[in-house]
Design a protein around this nucleic acid. Structure first.
Lengths: 210, 210
DNA sequence: CTAAATCTTACACTTAGTGTAAGATTTTCC
DNA sequence: GGAAAATCTTACACTAAGTGTAAGATTTAG
């Protein structure tokens, strides 16, 4: 089963990457609404339809790395041993922050990225939708971890609160980075995160999730 | 200053209502994506552009009563006396539930409404965006109540968690209504709500909000 | 090397949403 | 009561996102 990528797959990956790179650059430079798919296709030297082949919606051109975080959490939940799922999740987040994982690292790139998002209503809406989708997926993972049906409201509550916590903590880290003075971004992140975790643990007390 | 509505305003209100009614009926009957603005304009006997005059986006044709809840919360927060803002908010929600306020009442109409939303990706996304917007507005109100700057992460955390709680509680009430057997919807609502409130109060302990 | 599978492309089409200016109606003010 | 100002509706033209289809090009399999 030594399945090397093959020429076709390599070309596809290259095309996809080219389109994504061109689009991201143009969006950051000139704003999401001021760049048309036609222009992206032209600059990437590809047909308009090809852009839609890889990215069904215009917003997908920018948000292209969602699966990473999901997979990280999934792994941590299956390998959690005797820990409760929520504690495993919280431990993972603390580890990612302390080890300066790329997803949590604050540099100029994410600053630019999120400024571009904030300046576009469509992108802001899409980011919110992604957050909710992620929370729903997390809820399903939590249900699976304790063997409850997928619609369990306790899991949904936990997942939603955890995502809120992380999103707000991250946005505080970004702000702390922009306003140089007040301490390190990681400290701002941890401060909000620990407060949120306290809330989640209290809300879920007495359930198998915590 | 006895400013009665006047003919023009009455006509405007009537036109707006007609368009909204026609649109809602068609969406519920045939699905959001299967009804075009052209058709709504035709059935409502109005120009296409007039539809956009009243409802800038297609989604706005369905979500037309957002301001009510906001105003309810605003009132409760200014008239809260010596209560903390979060307790005032929670007390308001309990009252609305116990007094069977229209916004919380579960009948066939909201069931249909939310089924229509659930069947359309665009509407689902829009509903999520509205939830987040509401949470942000609530955060600002909380900040104002205790005299802190608007971006305070503690207020944002509290507001986001409160909104999650209410949305999930409401969706459980809807479900309890659909699956007749298990108890009254209000009980399902209260159960999730009280759990969420415990979490929020724990997360915000030690702050002026609680 | 040929045939099947797959990717890219060109073309045509639907629909959301915007801009503009002209026509119709309401309000205001003399 | 009537003319002018303000406002609403409408027609028209336009941009851009997103979809469907079928033909051409390229890679893969046998």
């Amino acid at each position: 089963m030594s399945n090397q990528p093959g020429l076709r797959d390599r070309k596809k990956a290259a095309t996809r990457q080219t389109i994504s790179d061109v689009a991201t650059r143009l969006f950051v430079e000139r704003g999401f609404e001021n760049v048309s798919i036609d222009e992206i296709a032209r600059v990437a030297a590809v047909a308009r339809k090809t852009v839609f082949n890889y990215f069904p919606r215009k917003e997908d051109l920018l948000f292209d790395r969602e699966e990473e975080g999901r997979e990280l959490v999934r792994q941590a939940l299956v390998a959690r041993g005797r820990q409760s799922p929520i504690h495993a999740f919280q431990a993972l987040m603390r580890t990612l922050l302390e080890t300066r994982h790329p997803l949590f690292r604050i540099t100029q790139r994410p600053i630019q990225f999120w400024r571009t998002v904030a300046e576009s209503p469509a992108l802001t809406t899409h980011a919110r939708a992604l957050q909710t989708t992620f929370a729903e997926d997390l809820a399903v993972m939590l249900c699976d971890a304790v063997g409850r049906p997928h619609a369990d409201p306790e899991a949904r509550l936990a997942a939603a609160m955890l995502m809120d916590t992380l999103v707000i903590a991250y946005s505080e880290a970004l702000r702390s980075f922009r306003e140089k003075r007040k301490g390190k971004p990681a400290a701002a992140f941890a401060s909000v995160m620990e407060r949120g975790f306290i809330g989640v643990n209290a809300a879920l007390a007495g359930t198998p999730y915590v």
